[in-house]
């Protein structure tokens, strides 16, 4: 499975990753090699096999609907890149 420049750029966009123009060929080669490695799976017939999402046969625990978190805004926003009036700021979003 060989990925070309367009594929790499499309994936990078979907993942919101800026990739240097110059390193695209290297990504294309490496990703293609990885996909070749991965393609080994295709030789196995798994048509009757139930996918395994989780190693343990466990079920979801439920949490009681009680408020356990109080306002920690100042504390939690100390690590924020840009904050004003309690809001996280990002470049203007145009809808």
């Amino acid at each position: 499975m060989a990925l070309n420049r367009t594929d790499v750029e499309k994936i990078a966009h979907l993942a919101r990753l800026q990739i240097d123009e110059s390193s695209v060929p290297e990504y294309a080669t490496n990703l293609s090699n990885i996909l070749d490695l991965i393609s080994q799976m295709q030789s196995i017939d798994t048509s009757d096999v139930e996918p395994l999402a989780h190693p343990l046969d466990a079920v979801q625990r439920l949490r009681a609907d009680n408020i356990t978190e109080n306002n920690q805004r100042e504390h939690l926003q100390t690590v924020a890149p840009s904050v004003e009036s309690g809001l996280f700021l990002v470049p203007k979003v145009i809808e």
């Binding site: 009680n66 356990t68 978190e69 306002n71 920690q72 805004r73 926003q77 309690g86």
Partner: peptide
């Protein structure tokens, strides 16, 4: 009373981000 996956309150109209936990 609380969020679907956290213990923070869902009450409407609070000051911004005061009901947003970790």
């Amino acid at each position: 009373n609380t969020k679907i996956f956290s213990g923070a309150s869902t009450a409407f109209g609070a000051e911004p981000n005061t009901q947003a936990c970790a």
